[in-house]
Design a protein around this nucleic acid. Structure first.
Lengths: 216, 216, 216, 216
DNA sequence: CATGAATGAGTATTCATTCAT
DNA sequence: CATGAATGAATACTCATTCAT
C-alpha cells in the first residue's frame, strides 16, 4: 500500500494519472525496490502493470526518467519537509532535545515505512548510480543540513548538547541515522520499528555507550 | 593500487595468475567499484583488461563467480580477522575501551583504504543483490559479532561501559560504524580519513552529543 | 512451397501472422530442413527472413519453441488424421487391403511431399534430439498404431492377410514405411514418387521377394 | 565395451594409440552417440577423456576429422565386408536364400550391436549432415549393392525369388533393412535383438503380410 | 607428446526504445 | 491514448582452434 507516496507525488505535480499509469508506477516501484533498477527490465514492468511497454515509454520517455519520476517527489518529501513539519513546532516549544530527536526519528521512520519501497530504491540507487549520487548528495547537505543546524544550535544554547562544533554533530548524526535507515529498511527489510529500538537509538545518539564517569 | 587485497587473495589460494589474468582482476575491480556489478558488462572488463571475453569465462566460468572471486577473500579478511589481529592483543593489555575503539577503527579504516575498490564493491552489492545479502549478512553477525561481544563484556566488567545490554550496544556500534564506512568510502569516496575524524567518531560512540549533565 | 502446412498451422491456431512473421517461419523451415536444427543459428534464420533476431524471439521465445511451432501441427496432421481421412472411408468399402495400402501410401506420400521440408525436419530431429524422441515416439505408437490395428484386423477377417499376429505386422509395416519415407525424403531428397515405386512398395509389403512356391 | 570396433580401427590403420588417445576416441564415441556431433563440444570430449583439448586437436586436426576417424573404419567394416565374410561362404553352399538372409541379418545385427554407439553416430550424422550424406550414400550403393546383386541373382536362378527386377528387390530390401537398423538401434536404442525378431523380419522380406492366396 | 593459456567468431537471448496504426 | 510489431545494440556465455612452453 504505497499509495501514500503515490498520492503525494500526484498532488505535488497536480497530474491526474489514469488507471494504467498508476499501475505502471506501482509495478515499477515494486520491481525496482525488489531487484534494483538495473536488474528490472521495462518488459517486466509492463507485464506486472498489465500495460504495453510502449505505454511506459509514451509516459516517461526513458527508463531513467521513470526512475526519477518515482524517486524525486519522495526524495523532496523526505528531506526538506523535515524542518517544516517537525522542527517548526517542536523547537519553539518547551520540549527537550531528547524529545525532539525521538519525535524526529519516529516521524521519519513512519514516513519511510509508509513508502518503504521507494525508500529502498532511493538508498540502493543512491549508492549504486554514480550520477544520482552526484545530483542528490549535495541536495541533501544543502537542504537538510541547513535546517537541522538551526535546531542543534537552539538546543546548544539551552545547554542540552555538548560543545562539539555543530558540523561535527551533524556529521555524526547523519552517519548514525543514515546507517540506521539503511540497515533497518534495506539490509534487514524491516516491516516496523518498535518503540524500544527508537529509544535505544536516541539514547546512543545522546550518550553513546561509555559509562558517564569516563567523560572527558 | 588494490594489489594488496589482490595478493592476499592469491596467497590464500596459492594460484599463480598470468599477467593477463591479473589484468582481468584489476579491470573487474575498477569497473565493479565504479559502476556497479550490474552496470558493468563482461565486454567492458575484457576491453579494459585488454583480453578476450573468452579468457574471463575460461577462468571464472560466470560473471557471478568473478564477482565472488573478488569479494570473498577480502570479505573474510575484513570481518573475522578483526578479532585475531586487533582484539587479541589490545583487550588483554591495560588499554582503555576508548583506546581499543580508536585502534580498531584506525585498523579497519586502513584496511578499507588499502582495498577501497573491493570495499566499495562489497557494500554496493551487499545492498543491491538480494542473494549476496542473504549469504553475507548472517556471516557478519556470526563471525564479527561473536568476537566483539567478548571485548565489550571485558570492558563492561572494567566499568568503562554503561550497563546497556551488549546486544544493543553492538547493534548501535554496527549501525554507526557501518554508516561511517558506507558514507566515507562509498558515498563520499574519500581517499583518506584524518585522525580528527576518527577521534570524533570515537567520541560520538562513547558519549554521544548530549551534554553530560543530561545523563539519565 | 511449404505454404500448405503453413496455412494449416495458421488456421488451427487462428493466429494472424504478419508478413515478417511468415518470413520467419519459412526461413526457419528451409534452414532446419537443409542443415538441421543444431547447425542453424537464429542469426541465419533472421538474415534469410530479413528480420531482426529479436523479432524471432519476440514471437517464439526460444529457438526450441520455434522448432516445435513448426513441427507439431504438421506432426499431428501426419499421424492421427491417417485414420480419419483414409481409413474411415476405405475400410468400410469393398476395397481390398492392397487397394487400401496403395491409397494409404499415396495419400501419406502426397502429404509428405507437400510439406517435404517440415517432414525432413521431423525425421531428422526425431533421430537427433533425444528429448523429441521421448515425446513423439510414444505418441506415434499410441495414435497411429491403434487405428491401423483396426484396419488390419478387418482385412484379416476378410482373409486377405496371413495369420501373423497384428502387432508383428504393424511392426514390419512401420519399419518398411518408415524406412521408405526416411530414404525417399531425407536421404535421397526426392521431389516426387512415381506410381511404379508405390506399386513396388505395396507389392513388397504384401508378398515380399520370395517366390510364391517357397511359402511356408 | 566398444573395444571391438576400436581394435578394428586400429588394426586397419596399424596405428598404436596411446592410452590418452584411446580415451579421446572412447569419449568422443560415447558423446557423439548420445547427444549428436553438433551438440557435443570438444571441451566435453576432453573433459570426459581427461585430456586437454589441445591433445584432441594435435591428434585429429579438427573436430570434423575426429568424427570421420571414428566413422570411416566402422563404415568400411559394416558395408563391404558383408560380401567377403558372409556372402562368399554361404552363396556357394547349398543353403537357401532364407537361410542366407537370416544369417546375413544375424551377422550384421551382431556387428551393429558390438559397435552400437558408432552405428548410432553413423545413422544420425548420415541423416543430419548433408556433406556426409553426399560422400557416403554413393559409397553404400556402389560397394554394398554390387555384391548383393550377385547373391540375389544366384538365388533367382535357383528359383527361390520372384522375378521382380533385381534393382527393385535391392531397393526394397535396403529400405526395410535400413528401417530395421535405424528403428532398432537409434530410435529404440535396443541392447539386443532376439531370434524371433530376426525370424519375423526374414519372413516379412520373403513373403510380406498378404495371404498366399492373394498372390498375383 | 602434452597442455595451459588465449582467442575471434559465434550463440541464443534480452534490452530499451521507436513507430505505424 | 494505447499497443502490437519491430529492431539495433548489447548481454553473458560457448565454441573450435592455435600456440608457446
Amino acid at each position: 500500500m504505497s499509495n501514500n507516496m503515490f498520492n503525494e507525488f500526484l498532488s505535488s505535480e497536480s497530474v491526474k494519472l489514469t488507471v494504467k499509469q498508476q499501475r505502471i508506477v506501482q509495478a515499477a516501484i515494486r520491481l525496482f525496490a525488489e531487484k534494483g533498477y538495473s536488474n528490472t527490465s521495462t518488459a517486466e514492468i509492463a507485464k506486472l502493470a498489465e500495460v504495453s511497454e510502449a505505454s511506459i515509454f509514451k509516459q516517461y520517455g526513458t527508463k531513467d526518467k521513470l526512475l526519477l519520476a518515482l524517486i524525486i517527489p519522495q526524495f523532496k518529501e523526505f528531506f526538506p519537509s523535515m524542518a517544516d513539519e517537525v522542527l517548526g513546532q517542536l523547537s519553539r516549544s518547551q520540549s527537550t532535545f531528547e524529545g525532539f530527536l525521538r519525535e524526529f526519528l519516529r516521524n521519519r521512520i513512519e514516513l519511510a515505512l509508509k513508502n518503504k519501497e521507494i525508500f529502498q530504491i532511493i538508498i540502493k540507487e543512491l549508492i549504486y548510480k554514480e550520477e544520482l549520487k552526484k545530483e542528490l548528495i549535495p541536495y541533501i547537505f544543502e537542504v537538510a543540513a541547513s535546517r537541522l543546524t538551526q535546531v542543534i544550535e537552539l538546543f546548544k544554547e539551552r545547554g542540552e548538547l555538548t560543545d562539539i562544533p555543530t558540523g561535527k554533530m551533524l556529521k555524526s548524526l547523519f552517519t548514525f541515522v543514515g546507517g540506521f535507515f539503511a540497515s533497518q529498511f534495506v539490509l534487514l527489510n524491516k516491516e516496523s520499528i518498535d518503540e524500544q529500538e527508537i529509544e535505544d537509538a536516541v539514547r546512543f545518539m545522546l550518550h553513546g555507550i561509555g559509562s558517564s564517569s569516563s567523560n572527558n
